[in-house]
Design a protein around this nucleic acid. Structure first.
Lengths: 145, 145
DNA sequence: ATGGATGCAAAAGTTTTGCAAAGAA
DNA sequence: TTCTTTGCAAAACTTTTGCATCCAT
């Protein structure tokens, strides 16, 4: 279990919602599958365990958990929709185009960039999650850059 | 006309392709509509002038012009697909969430960020076009940040 | 006539919605 | 009972594809 289900369940109940087996399965799936989990991947995973669990429920629960700030939603640079556990810390990712590996970056890596945008353009950059693409150390010399 | 159609037409013909009225209309539409133009916006625009021009053609031509490096394709942070004229300079955008205005940033604004990723993570960041979202100078004090 | 480009319609993929039924409070 | 949540099916939306036709060379 990669999330504190007791605490999450308590929060949800406190807000008047129910913690159904479907919601638990979907949350577990997002957790297990890691970062940038697509709705289809969640569906595949939970459908094996609970074949009657429908795509509609997957989408509804993913959006519900996002509203409840238990998940965060990301649109990736290739247009795919994805979710991941909402950590307490906002952060960013480096995504390898070759092997799909993820590196997590602290929010602070963009601090000076944001300050520059603020001072140069008076633009308040809102970067709660940005993914940058490229090639990781294992891939950028073997594969073509 | 916001693009050099004579030059573009010459290039396309030289590569063995045809410059059809549909292709010209679609190119003009992307040009006129500005940055981050969605396929649907292009379709609306050209469909007024040429009602038989189909969505299939819009999509085919947008992808064709992207392959020919006359347009570039962007997946925006809200998941929408968009196109814009491929300038000679790679660049980035600041997109205002309130008024949808766009500021164009030179490619160089991310130089130190990319160097940091390279030295800290040995990750080759490939940033041909990144859009950052937030609130522009007109919107960030009136609207809530 | 040859090969590229288009229009139409259908298909495919993804996400949302209506509604009745099931289930917890 | 009451209100939430689910499953199913259908709808909506976006994008792609097959195929006949059209058009430029």
């Amino acid at each position: 279990m990669c999330h504190n289900s007791t605490e999450i369940n308590r929060q949800l109940r406190k807000r008047g919602y129910r913690v159904t087996p479907q919601r638990q399965l979907i949350l577990d799936a997002v957790c297990q599958l890691g970062k940038h989990v697509t709705p289809e991947a969640v569906y595949d995973q939970v459908h094996r365990i609970a074949p009657t669990l429908s795509r509609a429920t997957v989408y509804r629960v993913l959006h519900f958990l996002t509203e409840q700030r238990i998940l965060t939603m990301v649109h990736m640079a290739d247009g795919r929709l994805a979710f991941e556990m909402a950590g307490p810390e906002p952060h960013h990712h480096l995504v390898c185009r070759s092997c799909d590996s993820l590196l997590e970056l602290p929010h602070s890596v963009l601090r000076s960039f944001r300050q520059a945008m603020k001072s140069q353009y008076d633009f308040e950059t809102d970067v709660s999650h940005v993914s940058f693409f490229g090639h990781c150390t294992d891939c950028h010399d073997s594969a073509g850059a």
